[in-house]
Write a protein that binds this DNA or RNA. Structure first.
Lengths: 218, 218
DNA sequence: ACCTGAACACCGTTCAAGT
DNA sequence: ACCTGAACACCGTTCAAGT
């Protein structure tokens, strides 16, 4: 009895061309060099040298693909400070790293912001580390998640701001409509990125200072 | 000489069916009753009883349309408190009203967040009132815009959060990955909207408290 | 000036057919 | 199991043709 014989044809079993990992890497390659608008299923397939429909053997939808990218990205967010620094400093480091990660991926924010954590193990892992850090610092258990959500909201909004065009606060011909604002806007750093960084750091510093005042500085 | 005679045909000059105002109102009607995914140029034309291509006599692109909606919406944001209350209370009222306005319009956030103010007179007007309020309260002129940008970032992120699905923080089968987080998440209000409101108010309160500490409570 | 109808160049997604 | 090629149901946008 040749029970060893499998039903698969003899000779080298042809390994599949695609995998979720290869697809994710190719997608990140595309959005890394070009824009998110260029990340189409067709472009992705071309990058991988397969037909578009082949992708659907590994990915259930484009949204699924975006979640995979987000998962991979989330691994780069640094929450190691919660192991070594006081909670308010760790919160700062985390937020800074978080924002940096999403500035070049604002297209993922609408996905990430409403994604059930159950669908994203790495996000869950990140939340766990931050929650534990806040918990051990004595933040009341029924508010640790609120603290996280609040910081995250600022981070997402600030990531958009940092990806805005250079002249976003230039009133153009309508300066007469807003003289005080126009003068104040002209006082900001000329480089848009520098201006955005400063605004984020002011807001983050204020928010964390407010949290310290509320929960104690321990 | 019948110099009075115009080149337009005699009789009642047929008034145009469309206008930017009518188009904007129809668009708001659609997103008010249905989802933003249903706001297509074809659906909008059908709502107005014209052909799709007719829209392009009044609107240059779908992005243009979204900006028009945003303009109209911005008129509903309340910054009147800056005329009557101390700056920190006015900032609170403004942020609350701002967020409320965008919770049902998160699709506009990517547009609004990177829109040059020159393209949006009403946004400019809003910024003017807020800047003036902060200016008169003694916030240094070179930081008023940063304060606004920081509050706005929180507002946009919080609007996303408030529009997230009910079970967003339910770890599902992966509770083992995040025991501390799971316990903390279970402590939040059952109603997602209530939970989101509380998180926003904690963050906003903290941020404003931090700003007061920085700039003085005058 | 303003509207219609047809066409264009895309999208994401499905599916029968092959191996 | 995994891939191809063709097809489908949409998108936003353009444009010649009409009034």
């Amino acid at each position: 009895m040749s029970s060893q014989t499998t039903s698969r044809p003899r000779g080298r079993p042809s390994a599949p061309v695609l995998s979720r990992e290869r697809i994710t890497r190719a997608a990140i390659r595309i959005v890394g060099t070009r824009d998110y608008r260029h990340l189409t299923m067709a472009a992705l397939a071309r990058e991988l040298g397969v037909s578009t429909s082949a992708l659907y053997n590994h990915v259930s939808s484009k949204r699924d693909l975006l979640v995979m990218i987000q998962e991979s990205l989330n691994g780069e967010i640094d929450c190691s400070s919660f192991e070594t620094k006081p909670w308010h400093e760790a919160l700062w480091d985390w937020a800074v790293s978080y924002r940096l990660c999403f500035i070049r991926h604002t297209a993922l924010i609408p996905v990430m912001a409403v994604l059930p954590v159950a669908d994203s193990p790495r996000t869950l892992e990140m939340y766990e580390r931050v929650t534990r850090g806040l918990d051990e610092a004595g933040i009341p258990e029924d508010q640790t998640v609120d603290v996280i959500v609040g910081i995250e909201a600022l981070v997402f909004g600030a990531a958009y701001d940092a990806s805005a065009p250079q002249n976003i606060f230039d009133p153009g011909g309508r300066a007469d409509l807003a003289p005080v604002f126009t003068r104040a806007a002209a006082r900001r750093p000329a480089d848009a990125r520098t201006a955005a960084d400063r605004a984020f750091e002011l807001a983050l510093g204020a928010q964390i200072a407010g949290l310290r005042a509320r929960f104690g500085t321990a």
